[in-house]
Simulated scan of single mutants.
Amino acid sequence: MSEDREITVLTRPRGKPIPRLPDSVPLPISSPTAALYTSLAKSTGHTPHRLRLTKGSDGSPLPNSSTTTLASTGLRDRSVVHVKDLGPQIAWRTVFIVEYLGPLLIHPLLYSLRLSPASPFAPAGVRASELQTASLALVCLHFLKREWETVAVHRFSAATMPARNIVKNSGHYWLLSGLLVAFFTYSPSVSNPISAVAAPGASVWDPLPLAGIALFAVGEGLNLVTHLKLSNLRPAGTTTRGIPRGFPLFETVTCPNYTFELLAWLGMALVNRSWTTVVFAVVAGATMGLWAQKKERRYRKEFKEYKRKRSVMIPFVF
Rank of each mutant, 00 (worst) to 15 (best):
P207L: 00
P123T: 04
A71Y: 15
T44K: 09
A292Q: 02
D23H: 08
V282R: 02
N223F: 01
A199G: 15
S116R: 11
A217S: 00
S311M: 07
D206N: 11
S203L: 01
Y258S: 04
G15K: 03
S189K: 15
L210C: 05
E251V: 12
P162V: 09
P22C: 08
A159L: 04
D206Q: 12
D77F: 08
L176T: 09
T69K: 07
P17Y: 00
E6K: 15
A202R: 12
S203I: 05
V282H: 07
P256M: 05
A158M: 15
S191D: 15
V83Y: 01
V25D: 03
F96Y: 00
Y111R: 06
D58C: 05
A269S: 12
V282M: 00
K294V: 04
Y306I: 10
H142S: 11
G246Q: 02
K295W: 07
N272C: 14
R93I: 11
R12P: 05
H49T: 15
H46L: 14
L27T: 02
R234G: 10
P188M: 01
V95F: 01
L266V: 02
T252W: 02
K145A: 06
T33F: 10
L75H: 02
G87W: 04
T287N: 14
W148D: 02
W205T: 13
R20F: 15
S274A: 05
R273I: 09
I18N: 07
A198Y: 10
P244T: 06
H82L: 15
N272R: 07
P17T: 00
F316R: 13
R245N: 13
V253R: 01
N272F: 10
T238D: 03
D4Y: 06
T69I: 00
S79Y: 13
E99A: 12
F250M: 04
D77K: 03
H49R: 15
V98Q: 12
G285T: 15
L176A: 07
T239K: 09
A182N: 06
G87Y: 05
